[in-house]
């Protein structure tokens, strides 16, 4: 974990859907952006006038920037996406374990499974797997076409992409599980709402995988145990022991 200062550049704030935004945070030095060291990690952002920081998954990062996808879920996130131009942000970066995408962990056919704002860390994960010479495919789910985002960016990475929408306005009608259940046995790397994670976890052809959880947090670095959930071998902190957990250890 590192305490970093990032500048939120107004011209790089992009509204993706009615409630989802892309933010690009610029680092003042390369060590700050380098504090992120695995896809699936998150940052915890201090906001003016709010006591608790807001934990946000890292979508992508480079030498001097972080890209975050933020869904307006409450007061804090609503404020974050509307901060004045060139706001300096106090950010704790490099939090959480992130996905383990070593080829020997996953076998030959890894599938990235995302729902809604949960697709954010899968973008950075897909990018790094492709750079690594791995061949993941992605199955992304949204409520409707109007709620979908980042599909061009995923497509530009050059991986097989299947989209599902609940109302059928884009891609397959239904949930990501409707797409997944037609695939041969696979290892998944999943992030999305808990009911989606649970449904994916329960599919008979999902033979293994990693699932990224979200929780309300106070500290984000393991001290307050506010985000603890029960796992097969005892209580685990989503922030420090996770947010990514292996299929075998998850209890629902």
């Amino acid at each position: 974990m590192r305490q970093c200062t990032f500048i939120l550049e107004r011209r790089r704030v992009k509204q993706l859907t009615h409630d989802t935004w892309e933010l690009v945070l610029m680092a003042l030095n390369s060590q700050d952006a380098a504090a992120v060291n695995a896809p699936g990690q998150f940052v915890n952002i201090a906001l003016p006038g709010k006591f608790l920081r807001r934990p946000i998954s890292v979508c992508d990062w480079g030498k001097y920037h972080l890209t975050l996808l933020v869904k307006e879920a409450g007061e804090g996130t609503k404020e974050l996406v509307r901060l004045p131009p060139e706001t300096e942000l106090d950010v704790l970066a490099g939090l959480g374990n992130g996905f383990d995408f070593a080829p020997e962990t996953m076998g030959p056919a890894p599938v990235l499974v995302g729902g809604g704002i949960g697709i954010a860390p899968l973008y950075g994960l897909a990018k790094r797997m492709l750079e690594n010479g791995q061949s993941p495919r992605a199955v992304l789910g949204f409520r409707s076409k109007a709620d979908s985002f980042y599909l061009e960016e995923f497509t530009a990475l050059g991986l097989p992409l299947t989209v599902a929408t609940e109302d059928g306005s884009l891609g397959t009608k239904g949930f990501v599980t409707d797409v997944l259940k037609e695939l041969p046995d696979c290892y998944v790397l999943a992030c999305g709402p808990t009911p989606m994670l649970k449904a994916v976890h329960g599919l008979p052809n999902v033979t293994g995988g990693q699932f990224s959880f979200e929780a309300r947090m106070a500290c984000g670095f393991g001290a307050c145990v506010g985000c603890t959930i029960q796992m097969a071998d005892g209580p685990k902190r989503v922030c420090k022991d996770g947010p990514v957990f292996r299929k075998e250890e998850i209890l629902w």
Partner: peptide, 11 residues
């Protein structure tokens, strides 16, 4: 094991 989630709220 402590309480169920959520355990934290902003004020």
């Amino acid at each position: 094991p402590g309480n169920s989630q959520p355990r934290i709220a902003e004020t």
